[in-house]
Design a protein around this nucleic acid. Structure first.
Length: 588
RNA sequence: CGGGGUGUAGCGCAGCCUGGUAGCGCGCCUCGUUCGGGACGAGGAGGUCGAAGGUUCGAAUCCUUUCACCCCGACCA
């Protein structure tokens, strides 16, 4: 290919609306162009990279025994209604009618369609297992698309679905896909972590995400400094703390705490560690069909609520904030909500002094407790009365209440695997694999006839890769202040042969010769034969980020050319004869 | 969806406050000179000033409405 014939509109200035390096360099390098919010055109260079990424994904999946198919992008709404997601998916699902008034949606994911396909053609256990995938366009009408290809509305995704006769076989395939994904991302030169993940609205039992480590990542992941443990913060767990702060000592009693409502103020007021305070987080849990209720989540004052865990725990689709007015209407006292009420012990009435017993909370609202409060004693909590807190509360009285893991792991918490320290890091989600089970096959009635002659729903797994997002993720990890630095495996071209001055016949001929030799060696090469000045072409090489440049210029008179590696910009001299070989070595 | 911001030539911007009929840099076209780090000179093409309505003799500029895009947050199989 000749640079002069290719449409590569590089830009000297960054588009004003781009903030991430990947976005800036993809636009400046002439890879992509924004058409509308979250929708991009791929120009020749971008398309080449996209195809290379796509090819790697396809090669590895095919090697793992998967079969590529392609499903319709426009899908009948009927299928979505059948699975119950037509309503549930919400505003992200772009709905529209055709000329006859039939309802359709633009596919944001294809569980429904793929299950339908499997149900139609897979009838027997003899056809199982099967793993079908596609690399296709998706559309999600995101509330807030951003960061170029990182979070688009229209994007390319590889989505795969496996069908099995039993759970065991699905788990085996899940493991195979994890291995396959590791190979795929390694081939792209990515530094990534496989993390335990929340299953989200798609449901399912086991789920892992593939996170490319990058500061600009939108996901926070928890990693252990001592072992391999890594998890999305939405799913991260920690070991129980064994070094706890010294407990305050007090008998159960009501304490006047005028205006003291925040955990911070309470800790100061009582001079106790927040570990001994009971924090209440009130949320409105929203369920299918818009049903909702107020739920109170109780945890230690030293912890924060992890909303995804909390929502999963009550089976809600989402948790919304609750206003103080709503709390008051529900009979609660904002700022002084506690899990128990206090009442005078009637038997103790006659005795001197004040003796109380804690009882269940005086309200009929769903409550959930974090595991760390199980059997906690010497706690301080709201008294459900304005300006009062209870001290010396023993939560053992809550034995039959519902406990669950609700807390967000903090930096410095202890690892469950090895006891090491947990830390935060940022990641870009480029892959996600789920053990789905029968979540879709059941409602969509996708069944097969098993060995024993019984009809059973498929046991499924589902596996996704954000193909277009990968372009952004790769640049986030491979760039410098001059531009992108593509790994050879996905570079738009592996080597660019820069002719210093095309009006110099000798230079042009030498450049063409090296270019031809590279091509015959199977190297994906580009000849920069544009009638531009030397510096201009070098800037483009650095901006676009071809892994290697062969510069044919001034020193050609001595039979020498220059070979520059993009990563680090190290230069080496080579004779005209050995240039192609050396360049091929660098990108090989 | 809440908060903030921006829309003027392909890109980046000035002009707006204080209304008088649109300008700069880059890019693009032609010619010439240059030719190892985004060259120089001369000439040129290109804009319903996001859209609609209003005020005014006159609106890029003032007022109203609306749309698009970006950022922070909420949300995100």
């Amino acid at each position: 290919m000749r640079f002069s014939k290719l449409l590569i509109p590089t830009l000297k200035e960054a588009p004003k609306d781009a903030v991430l390096p990947s976005h800036i360099y993809l636009v400046r390098g002439g890879f992509i162009y924004q058409v509308a919010s979250g929708i991009y055109d791929f120009l020749p260079l971008g398309k080449r990279v996209l195809d290379k990424v796509r090819t790697i994904v396809k090669e590895e999946l095919d090697a793992a025994g998967c079969q590529e198919v392609q499903l319709g992008f426009v899908t009948p709404a009927e299928l979505w209604k059948k699975s119950g997601r037509y309503e549930k998916y919400g505003a992200e699902l772009l709905r529209f009618n055709d000329r006859k008034g039939n309802e359709f949606v633009l596919g944001p994911t294809h569980e429904e369609m793929m299950v339908e396909l499997a149900a139609r053609f897979i009838n027997s256990y003899k056809q199982l297992p099967a793993n079908l995938y596609q690399i296709n366009l998706k559309f999600r009408d995101e509330a807030r698309p951003r960061f170029g290809l990182m979070r688009g509305r229209e994007f390319i995704m590889k989505d795969g679905y496996s069908f099995h006769a039993d759970h065991e076989d699905m788990v085996r395939e899940f493991g195979l896909m994890e291995e396959t994904y590791r190979k795929i991302f390694s081939r792209m030169g990515l530094d990534f972590r496989v993390v335990e993940a929340d299953s989200g609205a798609i449901g399912g039992e086991g789920s892992k995400e593939f996170m490319v480590l990058a500061e600009s990542g939108e996901d926070t992941i928890v990693v252990c400094e001592g072992c391999d443990y890594a998890a999305n913060i939405e799913a991260a767990k920690r070991a129980e703390e064994d070094e706890v702060p010294e407990a305050p000592e007090a008998d159960l009693m009501k304490f006047h705490t005028p205006g003291v409502t925040s955990i911070e103020d309470l800790a100061k007021f009582f001079r106790v560690d927040p570990y001994y305070l009971v924090k209440c987080v009130a949320k409105r849990a929203v369920y299918d069909g818009g049903k909702n209720e107020i739920v109170l989540f109780f945890l230690r004052g030293s912890d924060e609520l992890q909303e995804t865990k909390a929502a999963n725990s009550v089976g809600a689709n989402e948790l919304a904030d609750v206003t103080e007015e709503e709390l008051e209407r529900a009979g609660l006292v904002p700022g002084f909500i506690g899990p128990v009420a206090i009442r005078r012990d009637p038997l103790a009435e006659e005795k001197k002094g004040q003796i109380y017993t804690a009882a269940k909370a005086p309200f009929e609202i769903k409550t959930l407790f974090d595991n760390s409060l199980k059997g906690a004693s010497q706690m301080i909590c709201g008294a459900n009365e304005k300006d009062y807190h209870l001290v010396g509360v023993d939560l053992a009285v809550l034995e039959d209440e519902r406990f669950d893991d609700l807390v967000q792991v903090k930096v410095g918490d202890k690892c469950r695997e090895c006891g090491g320290k947990l830390a935060y890091t940022k990641g870009i989600e480029v892959g996600h694999i789920f053990q789905l089970g029968t979540r879709y096959s059941e409602p969509l009635d996708a069944r097969f006839l098993d060995r024993d002659g019984k009809s059973k729903p498929f046991v499924m797994g589902t596996y996704g890769i954000g193909v277009s997002r990968l372009l952004a993720a790769i640049i986030e990890q491979h760039h410098d202040e001059k531009g992108s630095i593509w790994p050879s495996s996905v570079a738009p071209f592996e080597v660019v042969v820069v002719v210093g001055n095309v009006k110099d016949e000798e230079q042009l001929r030498a450049g063409e010769r090296i270019y031809e030799e590279l091509i015959s060696r199977g190297v994906d090469a580009l000849l920069d034969d544009r009638p531009e000045r030397f510096g201009f072409k070098m800037k483009d090489f650095e901006l676009i980020g071809f892994p290697c440049a062969v510069v044919v210029g001034k020193r050609l008179s001595e039979g020498k050319v220059e070979i520059i590696e993009r990563d680090g910009l190290a230069r080496a001299e080579a004779s005209l004869e050995e240039a192609a070989e050396k360049a091929a070595e660098i990108v090989g």
